[in-house]
Design a protein around this nucleic acid. Structure first.
Length: 497
RNA sequence: GCCGACGUAGCUCAGUUGGCUAGAGCGCCUGACUGUGGAUCAGGAGGUCGGUGGUUCGAGCCCACCCGUCGGUACCA
């Protein structure tokens, strides 16, 4: 290579927060998506796909008083100078779709899976491109739809192998939060920005604790790193209202409702919120979803500004450890709620809606730390080797025969010798390697090698490799006519159950 | 965005108070072994020490800025 050319080579690089997903994770994700889809469909949700790109106004992300999009999204201008952006969730596109298809039978219940994009700081398990799998019911204000959302979340997590005690669905109602905020304002709702700031503080309860929230609501808080966060500046009496709300004892759903009712006394919004929660409780109880699976939790906020009623989140309650063995806070894997105003933006008409979204990648990462998630990167368990290229026609026949019998089979199409072919088979996760040389051909036989057994036994090879090769304890020869049965027998040793 | 820590082979790291051609383990490749991956042994490849500038006779080491990673914080529709 000529001098200087190296500097002109293109550096292989990848956008921050984006990632390549290789076979092992890809296959695991597909299995997971299939299971989730099965649950969603069992409730009658139907699929929808929408474009990854939307006009920014459809996403509702123009900065106030500015002609350009809010930060946090990937946006650019098209040739007509219109702002276009990658979707940051699947809910806004759904709203746009419903607004454009007014003839849809209501309630419209759809599911959708796909990548969404957010220009935020990436972290472990947090990416700028990630998969969400949503289900929503549009066009009904009934709490039955919200209760069902909780049921779907339970069924989904359990279908993914997370047992009833290993997760919790937590439910709250924005209207109850608004009721509390009204009490701060002496009976009327406080200014929107103050309300938002208070909710943000409440949302941080699990991270900063009750005392942290107290500081954040008041003068501000300095964290361990010395960083100072400005407080909301509420009066002491107001802070006490919020804290007493947050200190509500967790209990049965109906018990939480009783306590909430007292706390928001005098607030119409608050009373309505509690009434809605009672409806959800009744539906869940009738359907057999008890407090152990779905709990009412006054501390649940969900950051999304567009939620108008019940909000829910699904959290994992078992410890998630990374490779170092350190316990990692996994946060919520499921999130959702009611958003009654989102479609109205387009149509001017009421179109209540509710639903939830599962973070596919995040949950997959958590699940991989549990047992039982298959991360094998192979799609075919069988490799037909090519010991003698002159016999390729025979190898092609053999491979076709195995496929016809329903066995995924790869024919080695590389150019290396048999030794390398075995290494390739083992590196690509094959379970069985098949060999036909002149000997087998003459005898009407096929040699089969159990590669996994071979690996297990490899420790015993010892010094006398010659003898080991002669014995080949993991290898055996069968009549050509019985090759399918022989391969199936080996695979059966390793198939689950 | 802000604060802090850290960037040395594919991976995990070592590298004395600045001093010759920058090391190890694992992995990878090749051979012993052209009908056998995994054992063993022998060899080999792979680094602009994150980048740029500066201090110095001399910088992986010191200084500045930049980039990246991690942690915290803010934001999270």
């Amino acid at each position: 290579m000529a001098k200087g050319e190296k500097g002109q080579r293109t550096v292989a690089r990848r956008l921050k927060g984006f990632r390549d997903i290789a076979a092992g994770e890809m296959l695991a994700r597909e299995r997971m998506v299939t299971r989730i889809r099965t649950v969603y469909e069992s409730y009658g949700f139907v699929p929808l796909e929408t474009p990854a790109l939307e006009y920014v106004d459809a996403l509702g992300k123009f900065l106030p008083d500015a002609d350009r999009p809010d930060g946090g999204i990937f946006a650019f201008r098209d040739e007509e100078e219109e702002w276009i952006a990658l979707r940051y969730d699947l809910t806004a596109p759904l709203s746009r779709y419903v607004a454009m298809n007014r003839e849809l039978p209501l309630p419209f219940r759809r599911y959708q899976v796909g990548p969404v994009y957010r220009m935020e700081k990436p972290g472990p398990g947090r990416f700028r491109e990630f998969y969400q799998f949503d289900f929503d019911s549009v066009g009904t204000a009934s709490m039955l739809a919200d209760a069902e959302s909780c049921m779907v979340m339970c069924d989904t997590l359990e279908a993914l192998g997370i047992a009833a005690g290993q997760y919790a669905i937590r439910v709250n109602n924005r209207k109850v939060l608004n009721g509390v905020l009204e009490r701060l304002g002496g009976g009327s709702a406080p200014p929107a920005d103050v309300a938002l700031n208070v909710l943000r503080c409440v949302d941080k309860l699990d991270r900063v604790g009750l005392e942290g929230v107290r500081l954040l609501l008041g003068p501000g808080r300095r964290d361990e790193s010395g960083d100072f966060t400005r407080g909301v500046g509420l009066a002491a009496a107001q802070i006490e209202v919020v804290l007493s709300y947050l200190s509500l004892a967790a209990g049965s759903r109906s018990g939480v409702c009783d306590e909430l009712e007292r706390l928001v006394a005098g607030s119409a919004a608050g009373a309505e919120g509690v009434a809605e929660l009672r409806e959800i409780d009744a539906a869940l109880t009738a359907a057999g979803y008890g407090d152990d699976r779905v709990a009412f939790d006054p501390t649940v906020v969900r950051g999304l500004a567009y939620y108008t009623g019940p909000v829910f989140e699904g959290v994992l309650t078992f410890d998630v450890r990374d490779e170092d063995g350190t316990v990692r806070q996994f946060g919520s894997v499921f999130g959702g709620g009611r958003y009654d105003d989102l479609v109205e933006r387009f149509t001017g008409q009421k179109m209540p809606a509710t639903g939830a979204s599962i973070g596919v990648d995040r949950l997959l990462a958590a699940l991989r730390t549990l047992e039982g998630v298959d991360t094998a990167a192979a799609t075919a368990p069988v490799l037909v080797t090519r010991l003698d290229p002159k016999l390729t026609a025979e190898y092609l026949r053999l491979a076709a025969e195995l496929r016809a019998a329903g066995l995924n089979t790869e024919l080695y199409v590389g150019k290396q010798g048999i030794g390398k072919q075995f290494k390739y088979a083992s590196d690509t996760g094959k379970t069985v390697a098949l060999i036909i040389g002149e000997d087998e051909l003459k005898a009407g036989q096929v040699s089969a090698k159990d590669l996994r057994l071979g690996s297990e036994l490899a420790g015993n090879i010892g010094a006398d490799r010659k003898k080991w090769l002669e014995d080949q304890p993991a290898q055996f020869t069968v009549p050509r006519s019985g090759v399918v049965e022989a391969v199936e027998a080996v695979l059966a040793r390793y198939s689950p159950k």
